[in-house]
Amino acid sequence: MSLLTLENVTLRFGGLVAVNNVSFHVGEGEVFSLVGPNGAGKSTVFNLISRFYDPAEGDIKFEDKSILKMQSDQVPSLGIARTFQNIELFEQSTVLQNLLVGRHRHRKSGLLAELFFAPKVRDEERRHRAVVEEVIDFLELQAYRDKYIAGLPYGVRKVVELARALATEPRILLLDEPASGLSVEETQDMIFWVEDIKKQMGVTVLMVEHDMNLVAAVSDRVLALADGKELAIGTSAEVQSHPAVIEAYLGTGGRIGDD
């Protein structure tokens, strides 16, 4: 079944068509990757799904219901979680607090109960914490639990951002370049994690990534974009050998997988 669907979506920034009539759907339980040269419009697709921008044309559906009427802060309540290309963590908070913010969509208590820290708030806190601890164990962040983000190395921050998205208990996870800036070993970890997220947690993944090793290792299907337009869709091998894709990467002076 299709979990997330884009239908003929177009977005313009002034004269620039960042996303040009793009359609694709991500099936439940699938790992779907977006690839393409810099400026292809991949992150913009994510920002459209997060409702940061309104598409000029087209529709975005979650489980066959349009999300275009929703505000961006309502999107997470559907079970859509994301990471950012340029890591957007809460710098002056600890890892634990960051992950607990991920629980915000499950908040049940009201203002008054929280001001008095009513027993039910305490119970909720314990439950949130239990979920967060599972994520911490899964991503091996135990050593960093009480560390402030501002003091963490880049690679760890990447993992914390993934952890925060997982703490929301998403149905679909949007990962914007999860492996960029990571070492070979860290990228290897990322491959295992994405596989586990799909297989063990049953979470659907939509991923933007330049590292073709990662893309090839985890993706069920791959969509190549260039200049906002779809070039090719299929398995990672099919897309990599597609003439239009090779052409697009040559046009930018690069080779697929470079970045």
């Binding site: 809460f90 908070s93 991920g102």
Partner: peptide, 18 residues
């Protein structure tokens, strides 16, 4: 926590449902 989230990054606070 939502308050401190706002302070540090509005954009990702929003992406977390704040």
């Amino acid at each position: 926590r939502a308050f401190t989230a706002l302070r540090d990054s509005e954009i990702s606070a929003q992406a977390m449902g704040v």
